[in-house]
Write a protein that binds this DNA or RNA. Structure first.
Length: 958
RNA sequence: GGGCGCGUAGCUCAGCGGGAGAGCACCUCGUUGACAUCGAGGGGGUCACAGGUUCGAUCCCUGUCGCGCCCA
């Protein structure tokens, strides 16, 4: 077969489309490929993006890092399962579809009815739900797409029902009437985590509450008590006034009563620690039904809870039995007046009314935190309702212990503190939502409100009907009839209308996606997963809850390692947001620079524990890196570099080739170890430096004369070695830049298979059998400690080769530097005289004659005992290299240059002497450090001597 | 108020007990046989500040100042 030539230009878009198709057709990302049936699995579950989402920078980073790990382990022979899928995102999705209905001027959700609306959501999902999946594919995510899951799939829904029922049976899920965070816009309860505290400039209103039995007189402070509040409108629901038990000002008032202004309700003055004597007046009004703290105060003092708002945050006073109970005649007039008014309008009205009657003492400006819904943006209302809760405190204990014991580790470690902090102070998790889109709670109610929880409707209805027959509420005949015909039981047995918090189903993701509870084959093989990669912003929402559910249902952690990455910010460090208009769209970057460049940028910047400030300039730079690699491969192709089948790099004889083998092994070790340690930035830096600054800058340049020269053993070995090192580069770079490397892999040689499934460069001398062992042995069986996986460069290390190539590099660099400094144009070829050269140096100079002349723009290279007069004299590895430039250069400039060098050498000597002269240093420092210092001193002294000689000669020349 | 983290070259960031690094930007030079999406060279930093530990601190400890995030 004839290989296609490498295209002249690197065109990411074209390559990406083709490579994606290639992988797809080969089923390269599929878990459980037959040839890997016996390999150790490597499993990662994707943090499921919202089905409504589109790819943002956070996704790009998160999935790039996961993909690097997956491709790396796949090349190391593991049977990789990267489990993809999306989240149904209850509120977000429902909002999207409702907005769409509105835009199309179709009937709204409520007009349409539940069943019809849900049909519409599914329809929307079918049409638009795949967007983010396709975007992840563009990024190169090597998920097993054939196993894509959705949190509302049948299987996952069964998992949800089972978990709910079991936790309910164990008493870990229960229904409770207490305050929740109520969103008056979305008309649903939300969890603590979905509430954002936002600083708001408000006011503190000081209100006079008249004391019972005294004639209220605004001028007489003994006739009232002053309470301070940030929410005057809730005063209608006050059921007490609280003062601190240690507050002497109010000591004699405790136990007495006040008459609630405007309302006329008689309420007690109680002593409670909650009241802070330093704040406001030291007395607070207590509204148990509208404030979390007051709720607790109310419980402690057995106070009634009077809710005065409705679901939408409007005053609800008429027909409000709790409110009207025990009120004097005429109170209903106020109720009629205020009923139905929005909470913020009511605030103004009530304050005005209080002022009219002298109950308002003063208003102070006050900045305080106000809870807002993270989706709706409106002020959250603490609201008294029945909701379902998970006993998070109990469930957290094994999850805390698992991290304490090290069964699960966070990387970087410091996130464990955040995890513990939250888990140890965890509150009951409110899991019911008054939405339609989501997993409907598997609870059914009988006519008396008794609840029947079961995994299926049949089961629940069966239980319920049995119960009511037994209780003789219905006859057995009626029971049979209702069991047969759902219409007949309508109004008798009704299902809970609410759905579960989206995070409830996400918490099961590591095992529900593997088939639990229906088929546990994959659970056995892939649970626990190997690592979770996610952002710190969802440690509470998701990681903690997966830990709880995993420990409870699988009796094991969901993952031994949690790699927490940072946020991607804009180049100034601001959080990207639509409102700020500073969002960088990863898809635009992919269009402009290619997915590989974007991926490499994110990896290179993913230093642990630090946010990423992304500038598109960086991406451009790494696109250039891809171009560089592209051209290096073209160069190899143009010279006919190819790898013979039986070529063994360890057996190379040419110095240059032994050197690049050694450097390749070093890069292999660095990249491998860095990925293993989740140091993605170090891995990226290593491969970048190796490709550009070692392979391209030196190896290819030094190899040119051989490649262009005559046929022979040296040339054929070099032709092979250029190809060999190129192939190693393509492998090492593949996890970071999968598209370009796969393309180059295909066009540079006839291959047995795709690069994506090619074996990762391994320790030289390790047999394939051992590599297979490594891949199949479980990590905890103690047979092969991880240290054996470390790569050994032993077979490639060659100090002699390093010394020789090092000399060439130093010589060329020194000459280039001085030529630039002396403003010698490249067109001027200068001769080089190696003065007093050792035999070794002479040999090297002869062997590298062509290269050095070409790279350093030299004429002839000759040898002499002493440098010619008036020459520029360079020190290269302890010997003098002279450029006879008398007449070409300015002698005083050369003198200045040497003076500078001399000063540097002297400074070095001085610094080392100060150290070595310090007895304590010599006594305390490790021997090798002292030895190093001594060697440095010797080198500096020798250098100084040569420079002085050079200066002498210069003087003679002048 | 509690917690976490950050202040290193003009910018974005690595490094973290033994001679200050990268990329980009900047300046000079360059149509050298893969690459101008390139090559060669160069300038530029009391490593926020003050103490302490140490033979030795950009690195460890304490404090101060400045910035960011999370929780109350």
């Amino acid at each position: 077969m004839h290989l296609p030539m490498i295209e002249k230009n690197y065109q990411p878009a074209d390559i990406e489309t083709r490579m994606a198709r290639l992988w797809e057709e080969a089923g390269a990302f599929k878990a459980g490929r037959p040839e890997r049936r016996d390999a150790r699995p490597f499993t990662v579950v994707i943090p499921p993006p919202n089905v409504t989402g589109s790819l943002h920078m956070g996704h790009a980073l998160n999935n790039t890092l996961q993909d690097i790990l997956c491709r790396f382990e796949r090349m190391r022979g593991r049977d990789v399962l990267w489990q993809p899928g999306t989240d149904h995102a209850g509120i977000a999705t429902q909002m999207v579809v409702e907005r769409q209905l509105m835009e199309r001027q179709e009937p709204g959700r409520r007009d349409m009815g539940r069943a019809k609306f849900l049909e519409r959501v599914w329809q929307w999902k079918a049409e638009s739900g795949g967007v983010i999946v396709n975007q992840l594919k563009r990024l190169g995510a090597s998920c097993d797409w054939s196993r894509e899951r959705f949190t509302m799939d049948e299987g996952l829904s069964r998992a949800v029902a089972k978990v709910f029922v079991e936790l309910h049976r164990e008493g870990l899920i229960y229904k409770d009437k207490r305050l929740v965070n109520w969103d008056p816009k979305l008309l649903t309860a939300i969890s603590d985590l979905e509430v954002q505290q936002i600083e708001v400039k408000g006011s503190l209103w000081y209100l006079r509450y008249p004391l019972e039995g005294k004639a209220f007189n605004p001028e007489d402070s003994s006739s009232f008590i002053v309470v301070a509040t940030t929410r005057p409108e809730t005063m209608l629901g006050d059921t007490a006034v609280a003062v601190n038990p240690d507050d002497e000002r109010y000591a004699d008032l405790v136990g007495k009563h006040v008459i609630l202004p405007l309302v006329g309700r008689k309420i007690p003055i109680v002593a409670d620690e909650y009241s802070d004597p330093e704040k406001g007046s030291g007395a607070v009004k207590v509204t148990p039904a509208h404030d979390f703290n007051d709720f607790e105060v109310g419980r402690r003092h057995n106070l009634p809870q009077i809710s005065v708002l409705d679901q939408e945050g409007c005053l609800a006073l008429l027909d409000n039995e709790d409110y009207l109970r025990g009120l004097p005649e005429g109170a209903s007039q106020l109720a009629e007046e205020l009923h139905g008014i929005d909470r913020f309008a009511a605030r103004k009205l009530i304050v005005a009314r209080l002022e009219d009657f002298g109950f308002l003492e003063r208003i102070e400006p006050n900045t305080h935190m106000v809870p807002h819904g993270d989706r709706s943006g409106v002020v959250i209302e603490p609201y008294l309702t029945d909701q379902w809760y998970v006993d998070a405190h109990t469930m957290a204990q094994p999850a805390i212990a698992a991290v304490r014991s090290g069964a699960t580790n966070f990387v970087p470690k410091n996130w464990e503190k955040t995890y513990f902090e939250w888990m140890e102070n965890i509150q009951p998790w409110c899991i019911s939502r008054q939405l339609w889109w989501g997993h409907q709670i598997p609870a059914w109610y009988g006519p008396d409100g008794k609840v029947f929880v079961a995994e299926s409707e049949e089961e629940a209805v069966g239980n319920a009907l049995g119960y009511y027959v037994e209780q003789e509420v219905i006859t057995p005949e009626q029971g049979d009839e209702m069991a047969r015909d759902p219409d007949k039981r309508e109004g008798f047995i009704t299902r809970d209308e609410d759905v579960l918090d989206t995070w409830f189903s996400s918490a099961l993701w590591p095992f529900s996606t593997l088939g639990w509870p229906d088929d546990e084959t994959d659970v056995a093989r892939h649970y626990p997963t190997d690592v979770l990669v996610t952002g710190f912003d969802i440690i509470f929402f998701w990681v903690a809850r997966m830990m709880m559910m995993g420990m409870h249902f699988m009796k094991d952690v969901p993952f031994p390692t949690v790699y927490i990455h940072a946020l991607v910010r804009d180049e100034k460090g601001a959080k990207m947001s639509k409102s700020k208009g500073n969002v960088i769209d990863p898809l635009h970057l992919i269009d402009d620079y290619g997915a590989d460049a974007l991926r490499f940028t994110l990896a290179a910047m993913a230093a642990q524990g630090r946010d990423i400030k992304l500038a598109s300039q960086r991406v451009e730079g790494y696109r250039n890196f891809a171009t560089k690699l592209w051209n290096a491969c073209r160069f190899a192709e143009m010279n006919g570099c190819a790898l013979p089948v039986d070529f063994d790099a360890t057996q190379a004889t040419q110095t240059l080739n032994r050197w690049i083998a050694h450097e390749t092994a070093r890069a292999t070790r660095e990249v491998t170890e860095a990925i293993e340690a989740y140091r993605f930035n170090d891995a990226a830096a290593s491969i970048y430096r190796f490709v550009w600054n070692v392979y391209c800058d030196w190896y290819l340049e030094l190899a040119k004369p051989v490649l262009m020269g005559e046929e022979g053993a040296a040339k054929s070995e070099t032709l092979a070695m250029v190809a060999w090192a190129r192939d190693e580069i393509l492998k090492l770079l593949h996890p970071f830049m999968p598209f370009i490397t796969e393309e180059l892999w295909a066009v540079t040689a006839k291959r047995d298979g795709l690069l994506v499934l090619t074996e990762w460069p391994r320790k030289a001398g390790l047999t394939s059998d051992e590599a297979v062992m490594m891949a199949t042995t479980s990590p905890n069986d103690g047979l092969l400690p991880p240290v054996l996986l470390a790569l050994d460069t032993g077979d490639f290390s060659d100090p002699a080769a390093e010394a020789e190539i090092g000399w060439v590099v130093d010589l060329v660099t020194a000459i280039r530097s001085v030529r630039a400094e002396m403003n010698i144009t490249p067109a001027t070829l200068t001769p080089l005289v190696l003065a007093g050269a050792s035999d070794e140096t002479k040999g090297r100079a002869q062997r590298w004659n062509d290269v050095v002349r070409r790279m350093a723009r030299l004429g002839e290279i000759s040898f002499a005992d002493r440098p010619p007069e008036g020459a520029v004299q360079l020190l290269v590895r302890g010997e003098v290299a002279a450029l006879p430039l008398k007449g070409v250069i300015d002698l005083s400039a050369e003198k200045a240059r040497l003076d500078k060098e001399l000063a540097k050498a002297e400074a070095d000597i001085k610094r080392v002497d100060a150290k070595l002269g310090n007895e304590k240093f010599v006594a305390n420092a490790p021997d090798e450090i002292v030895e190093e210092e001594k060697e440095k001193r010797e080198a500096a002294v020798a250098r100084k001597a040569r420079i002085i000689e050079a200066l002498e000669r210069l003087k003679n020349a002048a």
